[in-house]
Computed example of a mutant assay.
Amino acid sequence: MTRRWLRLVLLLVPALLAAAETRPVVRLNTLEWPPYTTEALPDRGHTTAVVEKVWQAAGFDPKIRFRPWSRTVREARTGQNQIEGYFPEYYAEALTANFLFSDPIGGGWLGLAEQTERPIRWQRLQDLKPYTIGVVTDYVNTRDFDAAVRDGWLRTDEASDDQKNLRKLLYGRLDLVVIDENVFAYLLSHDASLLPGRTLLQINPQKLEYKKLYLCLRKSAEAERKMASFNLMLRQLQDRGEIPLFE
């Protein structure tokens, strides 16, 4: 009996491997943006875990690569390295010319980091005119904030990632930094170069906006089919309580 089972297993393994190989692949980029997406955590961040679980449940084989943000978006837009899309992204009307947006896959508060000893009082974006504000290159922020930057009446200073902006804030080279509050808390707890920020930096109590997170696929007929499958499975997993609702 044991030998028969062994022979059966040996016969089935190639068939199972072949079946796995025929699962359609979806190639995506993401970035180091902990705790949402990061290679430093076992599940590669809770947003990565959601994306992988949904694609796998929908019958796809997700291939996810970590890249700097500007490259993440550029490769998704051009199809370089066969990249079909990226995550996580904030919604912006300008991006819909090239990308399909999924249903929400997460969310968090976007705020302003500041020096603890130099708190800034503000109510409207116009109140921020006197200050230099750190932003990450190619990040979407809020519609009104980004419009103010384009119109030239908000002064910003760009960096390639949130860590660089926070270090500049620590050294007094910036007055404020636009940053997701969960990312801010994670970086101050885990990045050794930012440990002084635990006491020297804080999030301004006036928030910018609650931002939902999305998966983006470059527009095509195939992308529409894949996105429909993704959204359907996302809703099914949420209905079963296996993934939180992101409303």
Rank of each mutant, 00 (worst) to 15 (best):
Thr2Gln: 14
Arg4Gln: 09
Leu6Gly: 01
Val9Pro: 04
Leu10Ser: 07
Leu12Pro: 00
Ala15Trp: 09
Ala20Leu: 12
Arg23Thr: 07
Pro24Leu: 02
Arg27Met: 11
Leu28Gln: 02
Leu28Tyr: 04
Asn29Lys: 00
Thr30Trp: 03
Leu31Asp: 02
Leu31Cys: 06
Glu32Met: 09
Pro35Ser: 00
Pro35Arg: 03
Tyr36Ser: 02
Thr38Gly: 05
Leu41Tyr: 07
Asp43Arg: 15
Arg44Met: 11
Gly45Glu: 00
Gly45Asn: 04
His46Glu: 09
Thr47Gln: 10
Thr48Gln: 06
Thr48Ile: 00
Ala49Thr: 03
Val50Arg: 00
Val51Phe: 00
Val51Arg: 00
Glu52Tyr: 13
Glu52Met: 11
Lys53Ile: 02
Lys53Ala: 12
Val54Asn: 04
Gln56Arg: 04
Ala58Leu: 00
Phe60Thr: 00
Phe60His: 06
Asp61Trp: 09
Asp61Ala: 14
Arg65Thr: 15
Arg67Phe: 13
Pro68Arg: 06
Pro68His: 09
Trp69Val: 10
Trp69Asn: 11
Arg71Ser: 05
Arg71Met: 05
Val73Ser: 07
Val73Thr: 12
Arg74Ser: 12
Ala76Cys: 11
Arg77Cys: 03
Gly79His: 11
Gly79Pro: 07
Gln82Met: 10
Pro88Val: 07
Pro88Cys: 03
Glu89Cys: 12
Glu89Ile: 13
Tyr90Glu: 14
Tyr91Glu: 07
Ala97Asn: 08
Ala97Arg: 11
Asn98Asp: 15
Leu100His: 14
Asp103Gln: 12
Pro104Phe: 00
Gly106Tyr: 07
Gly107Leu: 07
Leu110Arg: 02
Leu110Thr: 04
Leu110Val: 04
Ala113Lys: 10
Glu114Asn: 06
Glu117Arg: 05
Pro119Phe: 02
Pro119Asn: 01
Ile120Cys: 03
Arg121Met: 06
Thr132Glu: 05
Asn141His: 13
Arg150Phe: 01
Arg150Val: 13
Asp151Asn: 07
Asp151Ala: 08
Leu154Asp: 03
Arg155Lys: 13
Glu158Asn: 09
Ser160Val: 12
Asp161Val: 04
Arg167Gln: 15
Leu170Lys: 08
Tyr171Trp: 13
Gly172Ser: 08
Gly172Tyr: 05
Val177Thr: 03
Ile179Gly: 06
Glu181Phe: 12
Leu187Ile: 02
Leu187Lys: 09
Ala192Pro: 15
Leu194Lys: 04
Pro196Ala: 01
Gly197Leu: 04
Leu201Ile: 02
Leu201Asn: 07
Gln202Arg: 12
Gln202Val: 13
Gln202Leu: 06
Gln206Trp: 05
Leu208Asn: 04
Lys211Tyr: 08
Lys212Met: 08
Leu215Lys: 03
Met227Thr: 01
Phe230Met: 01
Asn231Tyr: 02
Leu234Asp: 08
Leu237Val: 10
Gln238Tyr: 06
Arg240Pro: 12
Leu245Thr: 10
Glu247Tyr: 05
